[in-house]
Design a protein around this nucleic acid. Structure first.
Lengths: 191, 191, 191, 191
DNA sequence: AATGAATGAGCATTCATTCAT
DNA sequence: GATGAATGAATGCTCATTCAT
């Protein structure tokens, strides 16, 4: 049975997200993806020239949005720190998650072996920079002699936390509430 | 060279920790382990029936201690909450790390594909239980209507933070100081 | 664009000659041929049932002419040996080369895996027959006890030489001069 | 059934020579080689790390000898041109052929895609240089205005002829006689 | 006990050929 | 007539595991 091109492409991407999500890039099997997309291996390669190309197709958009948003937030905060940076970050993740939560997780947890393997680190570093330069100095008693690595750990925990909450909830109402509570807990001094 | 059985076993385990630590369970190579243990593949299989068996041998003890300690801490806190639970947890990780830091990290980050793949989740769940039952109720204003999943996220961030800091420092002095600062930040209300 | 059948066929053949010439039969790609002919793979198979069929179509005429000419030359020489046989052979190659040099080379150097793979051998055998029966007996001192296989080698070297020179030069003037010099060298005794 | 290492290696090399000889490097199949060597693919790769490595193993010695001999001959002739250069070349091929005729042919005709693909050209160029610098100037009437490409064709025909004769005969007596006759024909003016 | 040769299924990728549209 | 999506077997290569010695 002849299927429309776009439909097949979507099937492949769906199957690819599944596979990359379960196994990560390195251990994902093109055979398995083809099978779950309901096509043959040969045909898969008509749509994507190799594994990395498929990975890229599946992750590109999400990656671009993520970087764009994070940079935007940091820019925002540097100039006019009205709303909390952390709330902006949460909004970012919320904006991305709508359709791309799994892609985001693949990006962060399953991209070893691709050109994206350092993305998580980079995002954390950006947040860390903010934590270090803007957030911590505002807290009483913390700055003196604080181990600089702590900023990194905090930034990392914040990002991971956001992702976990996003993984957990589908309902956007619950989601916002949970994120808000999380930020309150995590950065309670800034409230 | 005639090697005693026990010595060979130890060599294998040493090499296996190295390999699992660098590559994780899935991508670890039995050949590489045998080579680095100074024995042949065939002989490796006399000591361990398959890859999972070897993984188990290498991780079993650490896993048992981890679970034991965590349970112990939770028991402790339930009865006499003198020292902070979180400091106990930090002590636990510190106690394990002395000889088994890498095993701990393997357990948490490289056990996908084995029966241990949910250990991190389980430990987090135990910590979460404490956070939920003992810690949060003690904080003013937070408990009412708090999303229960937040406890999970907090527990998770705490564990991940401890691991990151342990990975970062070798010097036990720096380590304790960083952990202490981290706990102060993370659970600042309990100070 | 509505293309006439014959024009499409010609496009395919043109593309096929290119491809077979560059890669030989075995390594030629049907996809590449279709692409360079400006049609789709599927359509290519409407014109030619498979790769060998296409090869045949492209080479058939050239092959037929080659065999015809060589036989003709031999016939000529048997009856009236005016002009040198070797010059006739050179003329043959020259006549074919005008439009079909690449087909000739494909036939001689890229037909492995097809029914034409022995053509070179066959042509050589025909020339050999002449060398043996007509040419060598005319040379003083050579015939007695001459290894019959030498005729084969000589014939082969002659054919290969003609092809090399044809590959080398496009200008028909240079070509004739080089061929003439080659024959002079190769069969100097007959001059 | 457990076979000795060296025997298996030899079986592989035998099968590889067969395959490379029939198909050339590019079209040779590692599976086919393994099968004909009576082993599995996996085992083949215990002996040779990849296709090129196997090719190299099969051809290395022959290639080294060939180059060594040819250079030696050229050196010889430049200094003391007693015995004919061409006879030296013939001796070279004879020396190699004893055990390595097929390897020699693989080197000349089936090495496309490997680091050896230009060997034939290089050998021909060396011979050509001699033909051009030493041989042709000694022939009356030929040098003036002779197309320089003719030297190349002559050198090539000589090498190909030697190989053909070698392919033909196993008996070294017949072989020497044929080669001698061939040289006499090919370079009759130098006699 | 130990060796390391051997197995065989798995991997990503390519390509001549077929066929529903 | 023509399209190009789809097929499936083949390619080189890897690796956990087994087994004759």
């Amino acid at each position: 049975m002849q299927t429309l091109k776009e439909e097949v492409r979507n099937n492949i991407c769906r199957a690819a997200v599944d596979e990359f999500w379960k196994k990560g890039f390195c251990n994902a099997s093109m055979r398995a993806i083809a099978k779950n997309a309901g096509i043959t291996v040969g045909n898969l390669y008509r749509y994507f020239k190799d594994k990395e190309d498929l990975f890229n197709a599946v992750i590109f958009e999400t990656h671009a949005r993520l970087i764009r948003y994070v940079k935007h937030n940091i820019g925002l905060m540097m100039n006019r720190p009205g709303k909390s940076f952390f709330e902006h970050m949460a909004d970012t993740i919320l904006a991305i998650r709508k359709e791309n939560l799994r892609e985001l997780i693949i990006l962060f947890e399953g991209s070893r072996g691709t050109r994206y393997e350092n993305v998580k680190e980079e995002v954390i570093n950006m947040v860390e920079k903010f934590v270090n330069d803007e957030y911590l100095p505002g807290i009483k008693g913390f700055t003196k002699g604080l181990d600089p690595f702590i900023s990194h750990v905090i930034a990392s925990g914040f990002i991971e936390g956001l992702i976990m909450i996003n993984k957990r909830y589908d309902d956007s109402c619950q989601l916002r509430r949970a994120i808000s509570q999380f930020i309150n807990f995590y950065f309670q001094n800034s409230i």
